[in-house]
């Protein structure tokens, strides 16, 4: 681990939580916004609004994942279970991988929820 990376990590301990939180918030926004938009889309036919929400929140969760990925790279991309004598490093890996996975799952959820927009009418 380089000195710079260590500095980056200790300077922003909150960055490690970013991946855990941003993805979840993006997905929540997607679910609520899409659900709320349905009747409006039915009235106006503006399907792009639904797709727009999907794209925007997808970008958000990917960004969360990217932050986590950066953290992971800074401490050396190894799987956290591979026991590390340096306790702090493996804890940072654990949190970074966590952020990555959670953002990834959120992105997947957003995509899955975005698919019906292409097939179902908003007025059914």
């Amino acid at each position: 681990m380089s000195a710079k990376a260590r500095k980056g990590v200790t300077r922003h301990p909150l960055r490690l939580w970013t991946g855990w939180v941003v993805g979840i918030i993006a997905w929540t926004l997607h679910l609520i916004a899409s659900y709320l938009l349905v009747s409006w889309v039915c009235a106006t036919g503006n399907y792009w609004a639904l797709h727009g929400v999907t794209l925007a929140t997808l970008a958000m969760s990917v960004a969360g994942g990217w932050v986590a990925w950066r953290q992971w790279s800074e401490v050396g991309r190894q799987w956290p279970d591979a026991g590390d004598p340096q306790a702090q490093t493996s804890r940072i890996r654990f949190m970074a991988v966590g952020g990555l996975m959670i953002s990834g799952l959120s992105a997947l959820l957003i995509v899955a929820e975005g698919i019906p927009n292409f097939f179902l009418s908003a007025c059914l």
Binding site: L108, A112, P116, A122
Partner: peptide, 15 residues
């Protein structure tokens, strides 16, 4: 409820 609205929740339920 509107079908499209419900389908978001079906998707999440499957995930």
């Amino acid at each position: 409820l509107p079908q499209l609205g419900m389908s978001f929740f079906t998707a999440a339920s499957a995930m």
